[in-house]
Design a protein around this nucleic acid. Structure first.
Ligand SMILES: [Mn+2]
Ligand SMILES: [Mn+2]
Ligand SMILES: [Mn+2]
Ligand SMILES: [Mn+2]
Lengths: 224, 224
DNA sequence: CAATATTGTTCGCTAAGCCTAACATTCTGG
DNA sequence: CCAGAATGTTAGGCTTAGCGAACAATATTG
């Protein structure tokens, strides 16, 4: 079965389940899927049951949701599509990194395998998308992403941004203003515990910047 | 109402009704739509009734099917999307003109208005697609196409190809071999009536070429 | 101009995806 | 450890897009 044989919503479920555990080990739940996809829990409960009937996920009522090998294959193919499309929109069509997620969310279901491979070729086989997320190879390989959320990274250390969550476009526009993008180097000045603030300084700048929890949790970093 | 508010199939119906009368005055029928779209007549009969209820077409049972002003607006917007996408796939991604129709048929429903305008800009506002079909402007204007089918064009005349129907990819590959594309000049040697053959000679070539009805009806020409 | 062939429509059905309301299970904190 | 909160499932209903069978209207042709 090809990825393109699955319905749009099945493709979205699988992609979402896969990406949910890419950067953190949060267990995937019916309501988390419903929240992300903008549908009600019963819809997801049904949807997951159908995916289980197709052997794309394992799931017993009230139990955990896990991809099967087959399901993972489709999920990774969708992630590849999504991230290549985002990269293409930025590189070739002048989109901002805050504008591409929504567009790719639709296009990923419509492009053919041939088109995806043309785009990949035209971009020179990129390995990361505009948000720093790794792009799986056609065969499904990808180097395991490393990094921790800025909110929990060690104060006093100097780090490189590896990845910024693309979930909130407005946050991305704020980061653009700051000049904070993947591969930016910064030093972590301090965490102010009950204010939930993280103070950072970008490499080459004098100013300190205070980031709240939603911002510092959206940024993944590795030690330089 | 925006074009993107309509279902994919409604978009396809409207586009098909519009294009059916672009190059010839063939009246559009339920079964012709069903044939082109690969669905059964009852499906189309229902679908047209729904479009009529939305005031996008006029249609009384057993009567003719005509676009309303509103329906025409949506139809032209879809034609613009389709043809810009075809052009983009050829110009920017190295597709052959025989490969783009199918891909555009899907993508046209998925791209945003923003993406279409980016593509238009990136291509320098092209006015014709790879098959010679005119690309309507964002406002819906387009210069009326002129031309007659090669099969009925005057024998002995020298003409320029303005348009080749993209309905049959295999035929397009054959034309590629011959070097017969939009803007090619050729002279019409003769029509052989009951053999349904048209003999042509491409400008700058020595060889005559015999084209059967399906080929000579797919080519539109204007006198030089 | 009537019989027949063609074309179009209506009817009743299916499947997918979504919903709300009601119910079941599991988690949690006193 | 148990009651209430949180989460998940089932049941039943809606809409859209499709189908075949049966029927209705129109077109063709002898
Ligand atoms: Mn999607
Ligand atoms: Mn991304
Ligand atoms: Mn289409
Ligand atoms: Mn075309």
């Amino acid at each position: 079965m090809l990825v393109t044989d699955l319905s749009n919503s099945a493709q979205d479920y699988l992609k979402l389940i896969w990406t949910a555990t890419e950067w953190s080990a949060t267990p995937i739940t019916v309501s988390s899927i419903a929240g992300r996809l903008g549908v009600r829990p019963p819809t997801v409960s049904d949807g997951i049951k159908k995916l289980a009937a197709q052997n794309l996920v394992t799931h017993a009522p009230y139990g955990s949701i896990e991809l099967t090998a087959e399901g993972r294959k489709h999920a990774v193919a969708m992630v590849r599509r999504h991230r290549l499309l985002e990269t293409f929109l930025v590189q070739s069509l002048g989109y901002g990194w805050d504008e591409v997620h929504e567009e790719a969310e639709i296009l990923e279901h419509a492009v053919s395998d041939k088109l995806i491979e043309r785009i990949d070729q035209c971009l020179g086989h990129p390995t990361r998308d505009p948000h720093g997320d790794p792009i799986p190879s056609p065969g499904g390989q990808q180097h395991q992403p490393t990094g921790t959320q800025l909110s929990v990274a060690e104060a006093g250390s100097t780090v490189t941004v590896t990845r910024i969550s693309d979930a909130d476009p407005e946050l991305l526009r704020y980061f653009t203003e700051l000049g904070l993008t993947p591969d930016t180097q910064l030093s972590i000045q301090e965490h102010r515990r009950f204010a939930d603030l993280t103070t950072i300084r970008l490499r080459g700048q004098e100013q300190n910047i205070d980031l709240g929890a939603s911002a510092s949790e959206a940024i993944w970093v590795v030690a330089v």
